[in-house]
Structures are given as structure tokens and as C-alpha cells.
Computed example of a mutant assay.
Amino acid sequence: MAERRDIDRKALLDAFDRLGKAAAENGTIIEILVYGGSALMFASNFRYSTGDVDIASLGDSKPEWFDAAVAEIAKDMGFQEEENWLNDAVDFHLSRLATKDDDHWLYSTFPRIGESEGIRVFVPTAEYMLALKLKAMRVLDPSKGEQEKRDIQNLLEVNSVRDIESAMEILGKYFPVSAKHDDKRFLMKQLFNFERSEDDAPFYPVRGL
């Protein structure tokens, strides 16, 4: 068995190729909404690894073969989170005001090579992704804080946000109650820069195969 490891972009794409192939072989097309660092890994130029993959729950649309395929991929590829590398516990943190059609974007279909598609992967729009990160605001987390700070800083620039109130307006679009919290404004003022960088500008989303 391979050494347990975080998931980089190549491994993430390969894993979804395998999952998409399994879906196609079972005559199924599954739509998966991907969030967090994994969505940024798919569709940005500023996130490179993750421990697991946050997805919206498939609910009743999850086929019987799905969990076994997920576990087999984890075992073969040596993912750190093992069979839990595909995590659907994120539903609680999503906005009930967001819709798939208006607030998500089709990143790609899988497998990437072949005539039959099995999985369609959607990622949040840049606005919705920023709102999700601002709601969680895990910048003080000892293990994830620095990465979260970098993600938010890049998303502020991607969304052309130039002041705190503009950031709060985006947050309020999806999470009206969270946008009223003064602690978020305080952290924004202390930790983030609202000037546009001249070099190595971040981008998101971008379709990439």
C-alpha cells in the first residue's frame, strides 16, 4: 500500500477519473458539487493540496456501488483520510440561498478521456466561494489558519473586493446573519489587504483538464 498522503491536484483529477469511469461502467451519470480547498485545487492557480474533498450530499441519488468505489480508490492511491477522503459533511455549512444553476459552475466531466461521462463536477462561483470562506473564517485555526488566510486573500482579489463592506455584502448575499457579526469585520481589518497585487494575480474559476 502507498504511504498515506494529502491529495494534490493530479491525484484529485486521477481519483475523479476513476470514480467517473466506475459511474459510466454502471450506466450512471452523477452530478457532484465540490467545495473548499478541493474546488480551489480544481479551478484556481493558488491551492495545491488538501486532506479530503468536501462535496454536497448525494442523498437518495447515491448509487449502491458508490461507497465501495470511493474506498477502493482511497486504498489504491494511499489517501490520508482513507475511505473518508470524499466527505459529504459540508452540507450544514452551505447557504440555503445558493442554487446549483446560479451559484455553481460546471468544472469538468469525468473520466476526462473516453466517450462516456460518469460524473459532472460543479464548483462554486467566485462570489459564493468567498462567502463560504468568510462564513467559516478559520484564519485563527492553528493548523489551517495560514492556508485559509491565503485562500481568502486570493478570493478577495479574484472578486475585485476593495473594502470590508464590499466583502460583507458578498457574505450577506448568501449568509445574511453572518454578515452582521462585527468580529468578521474586525478580522478582515486586521488580517487582509485590499490592494490589487501586480504580479502573480490569482484566478478562479478556470476550466482545466
Rank of each mutant, 00 (worst) to 15 (best):
residue 36 G to A: 08
residue 17 D to H: 13
residue 20 G to E: 02
residue 15 A to P: 08
residue 31 E to A: 12
residue 44 S to Q: 13
residue 16 F to Q: 07
residue 22 A to S: 14
residue 21 K to Q: 15
residue 20 G to S: 04
residue 22 A to Q: 07
residue 40 L to V: 08
residue 19 L to Y: 09
residue 33 L to W: 10
residue 17 D to S: 10
residue 19 L to P: 01
residue 25 E to S: 15
residue 38 S to D: 00
residue 22 A to E: 11
residue 32 I to M: 00
residue 43 A to T: 01
residue 27 G to H: 15
residue 18 R to D: 04
residue 36 G to I: 06
residue 21 K to R: 14
residue 20 G to P: 02
residue 17 D to L: 03
residue 31 E to M: 00
residue 28 T to Y: 06
residue 26 N to L: 12
residue 35 Y to N: 02
residue 21 K to E: 12
residue 25 E to Q: 15
residue 40 L to F: 12
residue 25 E to G: 15
residue 44 S to W: 07
residue 26 N to S: 14
residue 43 A to P: 04
residue 33 L to E: 11
residue 40 L to D: 12
residue 18 R to F: 00
residue 32 I to G: 00
residue 41 M to C: 08
residue 15 A to K: 01
residue 34 V to H: 07
residue 31 E to S: 08
residue 19 L to A: 07
residue 44 S to L: 09
residue 36 G to Q: 04
residue 43 A to N: 02
residue 20 G to N: 07
residue 17 D to N: 12
residue 21 K to W: 10
residue 30 I to D: 01
residue 29 I to N: 01
residue 22 A to R: 12
residue 21 K to V: 04
residue 22 A to M: 08
residue 30 I to W: 00
residue 28 T to A: 14
residue 27 G to E: 13
residue 18 R to Q: 11
residue 18 R to W: 07
residue 21 K to I: 08
residue 42 F to P: 09
residue 25 E to L: 15
residue 16 F to D: 05
residue 34 V to S: 01
residue 17 D to I: 08
residue 44 S to T: 04
residue 42 F to V: 09
residue 22 A to N: 12
residue 16 F to P: 02
residue 20 G to D: 03
residue 29 I to P: 03
residue 25 E to N: 15
residue 24 A to S: 15
residue 18 R to M: 05
residue 18 R to V: 06
residue 33 L to N: 03
residue 18 R to S: 06
residue 39 A to S: 12
residue 26 N to C: 15
residue 25 E to P: 14
residue 25 E to I: 13
residue 42 F to K: 10
residue 17 D to P: 08
residue 17 D to G: 09
residue 34 V to W: 00
residue 28 T to Q: 13
residue 35 Y to Q: 01
residue 22 A to V: 10
residue 20 G to V: 04
residue 26 N to V: 11
residue 40 L to W: 00
residue 18 R to G: 01
residue 15 A to Q: 11
residue 42 F to I: 05
